[in-house]
Every structure is written in structure tokens, then in C-alpha cells.
């Protein structure tokens, strides 16, 4: 792929994510027998938030929001450059950590508890992501994304269980039920909006935008599982996302203890089975 096309796609990606989130809200509303907001609602929200007055109690908080955004953008950008997966992974981790630091820097108990829970979430899904990346390495023999595109069969055929694990991580990252623990897009929560509680106005917009770029990375990772056909990878991404919406609507919120236990036990076991199968086969 030529460089300018990569850049173009990268610039396009947040818009795609916005539309996907809009469709998500529409579909969710439909499943709840409502009409739901317009598809471009996430953009309206984002622009409004950018224009609003920001009441931030702490400079550290706003700094963390910016770092979180930078981390997410770099991560998405590197992904489009088809760089090293491990590098992307660590850049993403830095971004997430700054979100937690921001939440810890203010004295609001909701934000503090939200930060703790976000930490638990990071602990839960990071090993899973690592397992997925290791799996990809075992198949392609390289950490470079470009090497995946050189395969002539879909990764899904070799890593079906790791794909399942990735969807697990996606649920956590998307802040959807049953893992909308540290913050969720529905405001009905025991800790108000968790890590986002203290952000307001344009800073909330920045955090939201960063979240979109994170989704670019995660959905991109999913698309890699059928990388040899553009059409099939799109279908795969949409199917997975659709499944997430369904799961979101038929489950209630679980606790972080449950999440940690299952992410680690079930996730690691599935990953091991898949990796051993790869090694033997």
C-alpha cells in the first residue's frame, strides 16, 4: 500500500468509528424497542463537548487527557503504518495508564474507584492481548503487521480460540456489559461515570476521541484475522461488533472480581490450547 493511502485511511478511521458507534446506539435502541438517536449522534456529542466550557480542577487531569489521546493516536497511526505489533501494544498500554493516572490525580471518590477498576480491567485484558500477539508471531514468524498481509490464508483458521479471546478483550475495551465496570456509556452506574467523572467539556471530548482511536486499534486487530481479503475482514469486524451489541443487551454488569477470574483462567487456558495446537501442528 502506498504511503499516502495509509495516511488517508488513518485520517478516515475516526469517522468510521463515529459512524460505527452511531449505528451501535441505533441498534441498541432498536433492541430496547426504542427509536434511538440519529446515526451521526456521536459526532454531535463530540463537537458539542469540544465547544463547552471545561471545568477541570487539576492541570494534571488535563495533561493526562492529552497523553491518553497522543497514545491512542500514535497507536492507531502505527497500526496503519503496519509497524511492529509489540510496539503498538506498548504504546497503547502507556495511553491507558495515563487515563488511570488522571483518574487518580483528583480527590473525587468516584474517580478514584473508577481508576482502580480501570486498572483491574487493564490487568485483565493486557495478558490476553499479549497472548494474541504471540499467537500471531507463531503463525507468521514476525511481529510486523505487514507479514500478516502476506499470508494467503486467514489467521482465523489457525487462531480460532485466540480470536475468541480477542472479542473478550474487545468487550472490556468497549466498556460494554457485562464488563462496563470502570465507566460505561450508559450513565446508570454505581460510580457515576467512573474514570470520566471529573472530565468535563473539551477534556471529555479529548478522552472520548482517544477512546475512538483505541477502537481503531482493536477493530484493526480483529480485521487482521482475515487479512487476505478486504471484503471478508470488513464482514468479520461488523459481525464481531454486532455480537458485542447483542451481548451488551442480554447481560447485566458483573463485578471486577468475576472479570479478573474469568479473563485469566478461561482466557489463559484457551490461549494455551491454541498455542499448543499451533506448536504441534
Amino acid at each position: 500500500m502506498p504511503m499516502f493511502l495509509k495516511l488517508f485511511l488513518f485520517l478516515l478511521s475516526p469517522f468510521a468509528i463515529g459512524v460505527i458507534l452511531g449505528i451501535d446506539r441505533k441498534l441498541t435502541a432498536y433492541l430496547q424497542s426504542r427509536i434511538g438517536p440519529p446515526i451521526f449522534q456521536p459526532f454531535y456529542d463530540l463537537f458539542k463537548l469540544l465547544g463547552k466550557e471545561s471545568k477541570t480542577s487539576d492541570y494534571w487531569l488535563s495533561f493526562c487527557a492529552y497523553v491518553y489521546l497522543c497514545g491512542a493516536i500514535t497507536c492507531a497511526f502505527l497500526f496503519f503504518l503496519q509497524a511492529d505489533l509489540l510496539l503498538i501494544f506498548f504504546v497503547q498500554a502507556v495511553g491507558s495508564i495515563f487515563l488511570v493516572l488522571g483518574a487518580f490525580s483528583v480527590s473525587s471518590p468516584f474517580s478514584q474507584i473508577g481508576g482502580q477498576r480501570e486498572l483491574f480491567q487493564i490487568i485483565a485484558y493486557e495478558p490476553l492481548l499479549i497472548a494474541v500477539i504471540v499467537g500471531i508471531y507463531l503463525v507468521t514468524g514476525s511481529f510486523e503487521i505487514s507479514s500478516i498481509y502476506k499470508l494467503n490464508y486467514p489467521l482465523l483458521a489457525k487462531l480460532p480460540l485466540l480470536f475468541l479471546i480477542l472479542t473478550f478483550a474487545l468487550t472490556i475495551k468497549l466498556r460494554k456489559s457485562p464488563f462496563d465496570i470502570s465507566a460505561s456509556h450508559h450513565a446508570h452506574q454505581e460510580i457515576v461515570r467512573g474514570v470520566f467523572t471529573e472530565y468535563s467539556g473539551s477534556y471529555l471530548a479529548i478522552v472520548e476521541l482517544a477512546h475512538w482511536f483505541e477502537l481503531v486499534f482493536i477493530l484493526g486487530l480483529i480485521s487482521l484475522f482475515w487479512a487476505n481479503s478486504f471484503f471478508m475482514s470488513t464482514i468479520l469486524v461488523f459481525l464481531t461488533y454486532f455480537l458485542e451489541i447483542i451481548v451488551d443487551n442480554i447481560t447485566s454488569r458483573l463485578t471486577w472480581r468475576f472479570m479478573l477470574k474469568n479473563a485469566w483462567s478461561v482466557g489463559i487456558i484457551l490461549a494455551l490450547i491454541n498455542l499448543i495446537w499451533l506448536y504441534k501442528g
Binding site: 446506539r25 435502541a29 430496547q32 424497542s33 426504542r34 427509536i35 434511538g36 438517536p37 440519529p38 449522534q41 454531535y44 456529542d45 471545568k55 450513565a187 446508570h188 452506574q189 457515576v192 461515570r193 470520566f196 467523572t197 471529573e198 472530565y199 468535563s200 471529555l204
Partner: peptide, 18 residues
């Protein structure tokens, strides 16, 4: 569902800062 204010983009945020 019957009135569905989210049609107009209304969300009950429960957080004064938002």
C-alpha cells in the same frame, strides 16, 4: 420506549460536569 427522548439526543447523564 414510549416517549424515547434519546431520539433527540437527550441522555440522562447523572453527572453535573457533563
Amino acid at each position: 420506549p414510549v416517549y424515547d427522548a434519546e431520539r433527540f439526543g437527550v441522555i440522562n447523564v447523572g453527572n453535573p460536569k457533563h
